[in-house]
Amino acid sequence: MTALFIKDKEFHDFVAALVGATPVYAPVAKRSLFAFERLVSADALRLDYDVTILPPKKLFFPPAQELLKFTGGKFTASVHPEEKVLFGVHFYDVKAIDQTDQLFAEKNYDVNYMAHRQATTIVASNIQKVSRRAFFGTVGQEVHPKGHDAYLTKIGTGYVFETFTPKGEALTKHGNFEPATDTQRAEVVKVNAAVLEQCPEKLTHKSAEIATKVRQAFKNEELWRECAVDCFSCGTCNTVCPTCYCFDVQDTWNVDQKSGSRTRYWDACLTESFATISAGGGHVENFREERGERFRHRIMRKASYLNPKLGGPACVGCGRCSSQCTADIADPVRIINKIMAL
């Protein structure tokens, strides 16, 4: 691991060189919002973003990911990873990527995700602006981000660029870096610690207490029914979540009616049909029929079910579900704090 420093005006050249050398995906402005997109020029980079509309999981696990192509009875896999740099990822999104890395790799190794993930060099960056619903400062504090290859922190007149892997180290050849001083390194620690205190929303309890009490609230039917009374079952909270990775699989034909593809699409456990099976004769069985049941399932997954496996909650405090829920009922902080106060 090395810590280097690059001045503001040379940082621009570094990003330009990177964009010239390899595909770079980074936060760019979408009118008043932000999105991870292919960076076409260094000028488009917006490291002052608060949060992106969709999390960067879309680069490894796109909304529609082809699994195979078929022609008649012949088929071939569709794993075509692109070597790329994912630049400017906030630490909460790195934590989320760490989770999907673990979950797609464990038991049955999912090469469709992992090939894209391994072809990616991740440069994390410090949070320069905190989004209005963020709570990353108080969620899963016991879990630290680990999947990034380098970490960029804006300090004073430039950036400190810390590398953690050979892939991260390899990027430094594109810029005019100098060794970071002890003062600059101390500033990095200060800046990254200070932002944790700036979240507008805060959980009142620690992960372990939350996991236990939320799980115990499972049978509080009235609570879940009330929480979900305004739910449209649209699944936006799932779609924008960096740790959600449920999917549907569908086959589609090409126009020749002989060939086609099998594709997985993001799916959402809040939608009505998510756990529904056909029983024949027009009968269906929906294992989570009520909105409250589906709402509860999501909160259980985020705050309790996966904790033993992940070492912390399956929520990183980005606040995307809170800010993008049409009815504004998805906010985990409100729900969890409410349960903890019962």
Partner: peptide, 17 residues
């Protein structure tokens, strides 16, 4: 249960944890 992947990824067949 409903299953789309049957390899523990897609989430459809989940019963609690």
């Amino acid at each position: 249960r409903r299953m789309k992947c049957a390899v523990g990824k897609c989430g459809h067949c989940q019963i609690n944890d």
